[in-house]
Write a protein that binds this DNA or RNA. Structure first.
Lengths: 336, 336
DNA sequence: TTGTAAGCGTTATCAT
DNA sequence: ATGATAACGCTTACAA
């Protein structure tokens, strides 16, 4: 059942039927109702490829999963995707996923018209995808920011402020040796958080021990290893800042092996993306966190992408939202 | 730059250029090289929608994320997707994602030609998606199985055997009160695992206490709650079987609160999907598991879907792979 | 308000 | 081995 069949069945032209179906005002209410009813009854669905070919729009947004970074290994991704996909599905738009390791895939997807835009996840400090897409003049919105100066659409959380505030809280509790277990050093969010951390130390006149700053992957394992390392130092920290609740899982395990109690012997603050499978308020020692739900990011970025593909100006599509600092039991005054 | 431009540039017909590009044998080597070179140099890419319209194939496979089940909340999903997407990307096929809550989305996607097939995840015991898609005669492969009798393509792990073996191991270690913390009761894998569990108990002549069989979501929280419940029973279990390592996370936390040591006071076995963000061999007490990497499932299902859409017979596309029982430190002889 | 007809960019069928 | 030309199913000027 295609448009031709339907229009013949109705004794109308394809044009009229098409207009009726797409809600054009120039079609009489009477025939529109007739068309809609027939379409419904005969279970007519317009062919997607044909429509795309005619309109020049893909009706889909892309996400390319980089094999080399750990986006694909990251449970956070599921939560992002949940927000992103739901929002687009509500507008009858799809998300298309592919795996790749270079810029080629972006180019191919853009030039073959498979998608109307991309979301760029986990950007590096200087991310070549942004340069490439900008040059191609292809719509994209970045989840995060970079140090690149060309204007682009982005949605980011105030990472620097969040970690500034968190560090300041620890300092106010009397902590002087604070460790930071951060993400990979070349990712922008890790850079931002480090900056916030250092700014707070500097402001308090505290010296920043480079040995207490750790970069790496954000997994349970890694959290365990990093914590083990920190507490074999001659002067271990009295507080730890984590970039991920996944790291906290491993940290918790290691602290227990060390016989240390979180929230008493060691204060801990983590960033919390609000993962649905890991609720920090229910941890045995409820966790003090900087919180910003990643699902929201997915939703907002979907909206921005739609706006962008409809011609909105990039300068109106740059958002930074704050993270909440939620104080719970894992932070306390330093023991003396 | 489209086919017309390219063919004019070359002084050839569109037909010849198209044939050359698609590797048809009927085109002379000389012109084929010329065409390929020009395409490369002028950076020509065929338009996806046009190609799809002409061929009638979508070049993509779909996955619809059900809002009501917890697929979208499940970190396992990321690992599945990693295998699935990578395998398809290697064949230049895409995966398109959408969110929905009913059968309507499947129907719409199938009839509008957005995808060439679906993967059905987390099937229920009697899953209406399978009925619907079968009736539509639309390609799909199920990740798991159901009790539905109509033939369909599926990839599953030997859940029943795995939990039979695991239970048998515990029984051989002298355990008589064994608890099962399972997934939702209406999912097929939970049903299969329960059957394996009960079969092993029956075979050993042990009575099966219904109070030790728990169904629910598979999260850290839930694991904590369920474990708490089990150890407030008048006669708590001496061993616990878990359907997910996520549950074990919460179980571990609760056992610690109870002052019980895993692998000594309580034996634990879990199914392990081989999540990249959670390595059971590195747990503080390395975990005894039934192991079957979910990533492999993603890869295999991708291949099956391609075969299916190319006309392979459903009866040749039904695979059940075993899970390994890997014994580590979390299981030991029962204390007396 | 409706119809005619020209695209959209491919692939596929038939000739040559 | 190559070229015309007709699909593919829809949207959208342009006419009426």
């Amino acid at each position: 059942m295609n448009l031709k069949d339907l229009s013949e069945h109705l004794g109308l032209s394809q044009a009229t039927v098409s207009r009726a179906l797409n809600g054009y005002s120039t079609v009489s209410p009477k025939t529109r109702d007739k068309v809609l009813a027939a379409a419904q009854q005969l279970n007519y669905r317009p062919n997607t490829s044909a429509r795309r070919l005619a309109t020049g729009k893909a009706g889909a947004f892309g996400m390319v999963l980089n094999q080399t970074d750990d986006l694909l290994n990251d449970p956070h991704f599921v939560d992002f995707l949940a927000g992103f996909t739901k929002e687009l599905a509500a507008m009858d738009l799809d998300v298309v996923l592919t795996a790749a390791d270079g810029l080629g895939t972006y180019r191919r997807f853009a030039t073959t018209g498979k998608v109307d835009g991309f979301v760029i996840s986990a950007p590096k400090v200087r991310d070549d995808r942004i340069q490439a897409l900008s040059e191609m003049n292809f719509p994209f919105v970045v989840h995060g920011q970079t140090e690149i100066q060309t204007p682009y659409a982005f949605f980011d959380i105030a990472n620097e402020d969040a970690f500034f505030d968190a560090t300041r809280l620890l300092i106010n509790l009397g902590h002087q040796r604070i460790a930071l277990i951060n993400g990979q050093a070349d990712t922008m969010f890790a850079r931002q958080r480090l900056t916030g951390f250092q700014r707070a130390l500097a402001q308090a006149g505290l010296n920043c021990d480079p040995g207490l700053i750790l970069h790496g992957g954000m997994s349970e394992d890694e959290g365990y290893r990093q914590t083990q390392h920190l507490f074999t130092l001659p002067q271990p920290p009295t507080a730890v800042l984590c970039s991920s609740t996944l790291l906290v899982l491993g940290l918790t395990r290691r602290l227990r092996d060390e016989g240390l109690e979180m929230g008493r012997d060691v204060s801990v603050i983590s960033h919390d993306d609000g993962l649905s499978s890991m609720k920090t308020e229910n941890f045995s020692v409820p966790l003090t966190v900087t919180r910003a739900p990643i699902r929201t990011a997915g939703r907002e970025i979907a909206k921005m992408l739609v706006a962008l593909s409809e011609g909105a100006d990039v300068s109106t599509l740059q958002r930074i939202v704050p993270a909440d600092l939620i104080v719970r039991a894992s932070t306390s005054a330093v023991l003396r």
